[in-house]
Nucleic acid binder design. Structure first.
Length: 574
RNA sequence: CGGGGCGUAGCGCAGUCUGGUAGCGCACCUGGUUUGGGACCAGGGAGUCGGAGGUUCGAAUCCUCUCGCCCCGACCA
């Protein structure tokens, strides 16, 4: 492609609504333009990146025996009513009516449609396993779209659905997808971790998120420094401590703590560390109040509490509900003498000398001995994991990271196949329900996360595998015939070798071309200038490196093509 | 959905408090000089001041309503 003919509107200034690197550079580099909140145009460069990512995903999905189909974006409400999601899915589901007034939605995910397809066409165990996938625009009316392509409302997703005869077979399908995902993200040049995720209310047996490690990520994850264990902090288990988290001595006493409602205020007022306090939280689990005890500086792992209580709906109690349950508003709530179930974090087992709310306005209790003074229903691992905690699986310790979720694999069991009657006949002629899995990849989010992970102050640094072009050729003096001729020759030779090349033939000064090249982030840059041309050389620079080097003009195209293909091989082999 | 902020030329912003000819930088067009890290000079085109209503002799500016966008939070197969 010739830059002079290309639709690549680059910007010098940072758009006011962009905060994160991927958003800033994709707008400045002429990759995307906003149409509405969370909805974007993909310009030629942006679309080339998406297509390259899609190609990698297709290759690996096909290799894992999945078959590509395309389902509609518009889905009739009847299908969603069958599974009850028409009611359950909130305002995030974009609903609309056709001219006859029939309800439709713009599919945010396609379980219903694919199950409907498979239940009609697949009748025998001989046809299973079956794995169908599509790459398609999805719409989710997010409350708060943000950060460009990182969290959009309309976005491109690869979604796959597996159908198996039983749980064991489904586990094999799951594993195949898990392995395919690892290959996909590696080939995209991403530094990622598969992490254990909440399989929660949906009921499946397992679930993994694929998280790209990046400071700007929305998710918090912990990963063991010794073994392979990594998990979303919403979900992470951790090793119980050997010693109680709070120790002290003294007589149980009531102290006045006027107006101190938060942990910080109480610790400030009593001149003790927050670690000497016990945080008493009242939650409502399916309409029943429960109390949770944590050390003052910890936070709750809500998923763990959900599992323990078996509740499908769980939320922090409002002031009035707390008052009703234990007779005092939050701020002075405590576990001594309450009649609702009390779940304490294991860290508090054997705790003495703790400070808790007195269940009386403006009063706290000091020197509480949990064993002596509190009726604890159960000690459990309840707090959210933090950096430095002991690993649940080995003797290692956790490091914490921020992550961007680019993929999610999920075993669904029969959650959809059961209500929709997706069955088959087994060898004995008996009707059975298919066991499913679903597997998503955020195609557009991969593009954003690749930039989050690979950029500097000047712009993007694309991995070779997903870059819009593999090499850019810059003729530096457009009025010098020798320079132009050499650049044109190299350009056509590279094209003949099948290299994706962008020739910056614009009548710009060298500085402007360098700046745009850095911004756009094509991994290899060849500068054709009269300085080096006189010695029969071209200047070659990797976008990721600070220094350039010279290569011979003779055979340059072949040498460049070889560099590109070995770079791509390296990503595959990683 | 709660809190905060912003809508003025394609982009970034000033002007709004204190009503009185709509501005600056970048980008764009023309001409000239420049040419290895976003050149310079001269000239030029471009804005229903988000929208509707109101107050006023007069509204970008004051009032009411509304729409859009951004940030924080809550939420999120």
């Amino acid at each position: 492609m010739r830059f002079s003919k290309a639709f690549i509107p680059t910007l010098k200034e940072v758009p006011a609504d962009a905060q994160v690197a991927s958003h800033v550079f994709m707008v400045r580099g002429g990759y995307i333009r906003k149409v509405a909140a969370g909805i974007y145009n993909f310009l030629p460069l942006g679309w080339r990146v998406i297509k390259r990512i899609e190609d990698i995903v297709r290759e690996e999905m096909d290799r894992a025996d999945a078959q590509e189909i395309l389902m509609p974006a518009s889905i009739p409400a009847e299908l969603w009513q069958e599974t009850g999601r028409w009611k359950k899915y909130g305002p995030e589901l974009l609903r609309f009516k056709d001219r006859k007034g029939a309800d439709f939605c713009f599919g945010p995910t396609h379980e219903e449609v694919v199950v409907d397809l498979v239940r009609r066409e697949t009748k025998s165990y001989r046809e299973l396993p079956l794995n169908l996938y599509q790459i398609q625009g999805k719409f989710r009316d997010e409350m708060r779209p943000r950060a460009g392509l990182m969290r959009g409302r309309e976005f491109i997703m690869k979604d796959a659905y597996s159908f198996d005869v039983d749980v064991e077979a489904a586990a094999i399908s799951y594993k195949k997808m898990y392995e395919a995902y690892k290959r996909i993200f590696k080939r995209c040049g991403l530094d990622f971790r598969p992490v254990e995720a909440d399989s929660g209310a949906i009921g499946g047996s397992q679930s993994h998120e694929f998280q790209v490690l990046a400071e700007s990520g929305e998710d918090s994850i912990v990963a063991c420094d010794t073994c392979e264990y990594a998990a979303n902090v919403e979900e992470a288990e951790h090793r119980a401590p050997k010693q109680p988290g709070i120790m002290g001595e003294g007589e149980l006493e009531t102290v006045d703590t006027p107006g101190t409602k938060t942990i910080a205020e109480v610790s400030e007022f009593l001149k003790v560390a927050p670690t000497q306090l016990i945080k008493s939280l009242v939650y409502v689990a399916d309409d029943k109040p429960v109390m949770v005890l944590l050390r003052g500086d910890r936070s709750l792992n809500e998923v763990a509490l959900k599992k323990i209580t078996g509740a499908t709906e769980l939320f922090l109690a409002r002031d009035g509900q707390v008052k009703k349950a234990i007779g005092v508003k939050p701020g002075f709530a405590g576990p001594v003498g309450v009649s609702i179930p009390v779940y304490a974090d294991v860290e508090l087992k054997g705790a003495t000398g703790a400070i808790v709310g007195a269940n009386e306005k403006d009063k706290h209790l000091r020197n509480v001995d949990l064993a002596r003074d509190v009726k604890v229903t159960e000690f459990l691992c309840l707090r959210a994991a933090e950096e430095g905690d002991g690993c649940a699986r080995c003797e290692g310790h956790y490091k914490s990271y921020r992550g961007i979720e680019v993929g999610h694999v999920f075993s669904l069991g029969t959650v959809y196949s059961e209500p929709m009657g997706c069955t088959f006949l087994d060898e004995g002629g008996k009707s059975k329900t298919m066991v499913m899995g679903c597997y998503g990849i955020g195609i557009t989010r991969i593009a954003a996360s690749a930039i989050e992970q690979n950029h500097d102050e000047s712009g993007i640094i694309w991995p070779m595998s997903i870059a819009p072009y593999e090499v850019t050729v810059l003729p530096l003096q457009v009025k010098d015939d020798d320079v132009v001729a050499a650049a044109e020759k190299l350009y056509s030779e590279l094209q003949d070798l099948g290299v994706e090349v962008l020739l910056d033939d614009r009548k710009e000064r060298p500085g402007a071309k360098f700046k745009d090249a850095d911004l756009i982030g094509i991994p290899l840059r060849i500068a054709v200038g009269k300085r080096t041309l006189g010695e029969g050389k071209l200047e070659l620079k990797w976008r990721r490196d600070a220094e350039a080097s010279n290569i011979d003009l003779d055979g340059a195209a072949e040498a460049i093509a070889a560099l590109i293909s070995s770079e791509k091989q390296a990503l595959r082999a990683r």
